[in-house]
Amino acid sequence: MRSLRFPTLVALLLAGLTTSGSVLAAETYEIDPVHSTIAFRIQHLGVAYTWGRFGAMSGQAVIDEQNPAASSVQVEVKVESIDTGDEKRDKHLRSPDFFDAKTFPVARFTSTSVRRKGDVYEITGTFELHGVEKTITLPLERVGSGKDPWGGYRTGFSGRTTIRRSDFGMKWGLGGPVGDEVELFFDLELIRQ
């Protein structure tokens, strides 16, 4: 019985050390909404781009520098906070013609896998918008990291991707003045917890 206990103990210790090592490497961050931007642009009449942004967002990220595949991210955006610089247009965008913000108040991205190529994290995950879930890949480039003046530690990422609004059930007005392709821009500042 004793001869069995010692190797078991060693194995458990090793497993514990390995686990605690990865826990140490993985750090949890919260999005700083005041210094982050989620914006989009879409073609109007096929001649120019109209820009908009979402003012209210929240989210967390777990960043594992040693094992990027163990990293994860979740971002939530309150659709109601859409701002295109024209209140009438924003009301229309919140209506059932587009975002249907009262039925689908939140847009959410939840990562399922993370790959790192140099400073770029390729984050694949589920994007839920307008009640539709699609898998998208979001390349996020690390802008910088460092201590802030208040004793905290921050890191920042920037990236963009393109979706089609029709893929997410927003089909009204297709072929009209408002385009189908939407370019999404992410500039996220994260505070280590």
Partner: peptide, 11 residues
């Protein structure tokens, strides 16, 4: 017109 004024051109 009622629904268009009410911000839902679709409806």
């Amino acid at each position: 017109p009622l629904l268009v004024f009410g911000a839902s051109a679709l409806f």
